[in-house]
C-alpha cells in the first residue's frame, strides 16, 4: 500500500538569501543596496540564458520589497498602464506587446524622474532586444547585468542547500549523479530533487542513487 503524503511540505519561496550567487555576487549586492535605498540607480536590466536565475532574482527582490512594507509586483507578458506601485519587476520583457512596451516606456520615464524601482529581465543584452528602439535603449541606460548560470560545483551547492531547506539530507554521490545525468538547468534539477524528496517520504527510504534513477525514469506509456 502506498503511503499518501500530507501536503505540508515547507513552502519554498525565492529569496535573495537562497540564491546561490556563483559569479553574480556583484549583481546580488547591487540589488540589496537598491532595495535598501542605499544605491543611486533604481532601474536594472538583467539578462541571461533560460534557467540562469533571472525570475528567481526578480521574485526575490519583489518579495523583499514587500517585506519592507512597499507595494511591489512581478509581472510577465503584460504591463498595465500607470500601475501605482513603488517597485515593479517585468520578467521576459521580449514578450511585451505594443501596448506593454508603451506602458514600459512611460513607467521607465516615471521611475527615473519621480522615484520607485524598476527591475526588468530578458534573454539578451539590451542592444539585441527586439523591442521599440526607445524602450531598448532605455533598458541599457540603467545598471545592466548578465546573470551567469552556475557551474557544476555551484549547482551541487545549490542542490544541497535546496535539499537542506526541505529537510532532506542529500548524499554527495546522489547530487553528483543528478548533475551528471540530469538536464543542465537548475530549475529542472530542483524539480527532480523535489520529486526525489516526495518519493523518499512515500517509500520511507533515504535518498540514494537507485531511488534517484527511478525518479528520473521517463513515465511508462499508458
Amino acid at each position: 500500500m502506498t503511503q499518501l503524503l500530507l501536503n505540508i511540505a515547507p513552502e519554498w519561496a525565492p529569496t535573495l538569501d537562497n540564491f546561490v550567487a556563483g559569479r553574480n555576487a556583484e549583481l546580488l549586492s547591487a540589488l540589496r543596496h537598491a532595495l535598501a535605498g542605499t544605491a543611486g540607480e533604481r532601474c536594472f536590466y538583467l539578462w541571461g540564458e533560460a534557467g540562469s536565475g533571472k525570475s528567481h532574482l526578480l521574485q526575490a527582490a519583489v518579495g523583499q520589497a514587500r517585506a519592507r512594507g512597499r507595494q511591489a509586483i512581478c509581472l510577465c507578458g503584460a504591463l498595465p498602464e500607470a500601475v501605482l506601485l513603488e517597485m515593479i519587476a517585468v520578467d521576459d520583457v521580449e514578450t511585451l506587446d505594443e501596448a506593454g512596451q508603451a506602458a514600459l516606456f512611460d513607467l521607465y520615464n516615471r521611475v527615473r524622474e519621480s522615484g520607485g524601482m524598476l527591475l526588468v529581465s530578458g534573454a539578451v543584452a539590451p542592444a539585441h532586444l527586439k523591442l521599440r528602439d526607445d524602450v531598448r535603449t532605455r533598458l541599457g541606460w540603467g545598471l545592466v547585468y548578465q546573470v551567469h548560470g552556475l557551474n557544476d560545483g555551484e549547482k551541487a551547492r545549490a542542490l544541497e542547500s535546496h535539499a537542506r531547506a526541505r529537510g532532506l539530507a542529500l548524499p554527495h554521490e546522489v547530487a553528483q549523479y543528478l548533475l551528471r545525468h540530469g538536464r543542465r538547468d537548475l530549475p529542472a534539477l530542483l524539480a527532480i530533487l523535489d520529486a526525489l524528496d516526495a518519493r523518499c517520504l512515500r517509500l520511507k527510504r533515504a535518498p540514494s542513487v537507485p531511488l534517484l534513477k527511478e525518479v528520473m525514469q521517463p513515465p511508462e506509456p499508458v
Binding site: 507595494q71 498595465p80 498602464e81 501605482l84 506601485l85 513603488e86 516615471r110 519621480s114 522615484g115
Partner: peptide, 26 residues
C-alpha cells in the same frame, strides 16, 4: 481604448483608505 491605470486600496467596501503610494510628481 487604451490600458487603464490601476490603483489598489485596502479597506472596507464603503470606507476605503488609500494604500501606500509611490512617490510621484516631484
Amino acid at each position: 481604448p487604451g490600458t487603464p491605470s490601476f490603483e489598489f486600496r485596502i479597506g472596507k467596501k464603503s470606507s476605503v483608505v488609500p494604500a501606500q503610494k509611490p512617490r510621484t510628481n516631484a
